[in-house]
Nucleic acid binder design. Structure first.
Lengths: 126, 126
DNA sequence: TTTGACCTTTACGTAAACGTAAGGCTTGTT
DNA sequence: AACAAGCCTTACGTTTACGTAAAGGTCAAA
């Protein structure tokens, strides 16, 4: 398991997803595993991509958003316009992450309130 | 606009969504506006709920997850078991938010790296 | 009075993200 | 030799979260 290649089933077990999901990500152009005959072979590169996809999902990203992010990490930008467009996208993402941090903070403080009320109710009935 | 009641169209404009979406949230049991004849009337309570729904969406929550959260805020829990189940749910949510914060931090540092490489590439071609 | 801007319900359509067979090839084990 | 495990492709089904008409009621301004 500590090697540099994995089967689709190994990755599925590792990340708690189905092989169907992994094949679907490939179909959507997010993964490009090699092949040994028919069988897919996953190297660290695609394993990292899979991690990025799952992280994106935990943050509510769609697969196409994750694809854009992944493409940002391995950019094919070679002219000034593309590079500046990339910088703009980076800023957009940052702004979204800032918004998410605000949302998380708000939700956390509300959870604190609810917990307090909940504990008060439990104390009353003691 | 600074009153205590709103129409569905006003809310839609305010939050940049469609009236269809708002009606859908009601159909899914997340909103319960009053009626003036046929016409829906929204008071602060449902406006707050709508805000919570949209915040949940920004964090990648499904509507049923948002519904659960909203129900946590206005709990009908009256016995010990329900209250303790509620505390467990609060803990689950907190853990998820912690994970999201880690994910955001990782993504931010990666965005920093990409930006740096991007700026380097722009400098080279100056 | 008729037009426009709202509101309503009902209902079919759609994109995303897989789930779930069905059928078949390979390969190691009993 | 036969069976289980794991891989493959193809393809139809499902859930979520709305979009998009269609058909109609209300009400104020022109």
């Amino acid at each position: 398991m500590n090697q540099e290649i994995w089967t689709i089933g190994e990755l599925a077990r590792t990340f708690g997803i189905t092989t169907r999901a992994i094949r679907f990500y490939e179909h959507e152009g997010l993964l490009h595993p090699e092949r040994d005959g028919q069988t897919r072979i996953y190297r660290p590169r695609d394993r990292v991509r899979l991690k990025l996809i799952l992280r994106g999902k935990r943050l509510g990203f769609s697969l196409s958003e994750s694809r854009e992010l992944i493409n940002m990490y391995s950019p094919d930008a070679d002219n000034r316009d593309q590079l500046e467009a990339l910088l703009d996208k980076i800023d957009d993402r940052r702004r979204q992450l800032e918004q998410q941090k605000r949302d998380i903070a708000a939700m956390e403080s509300e959870l604190n309130e609810v917990e307090q009320r909940c504990r008060d109710a439990l104390a009353e009935r003691a």
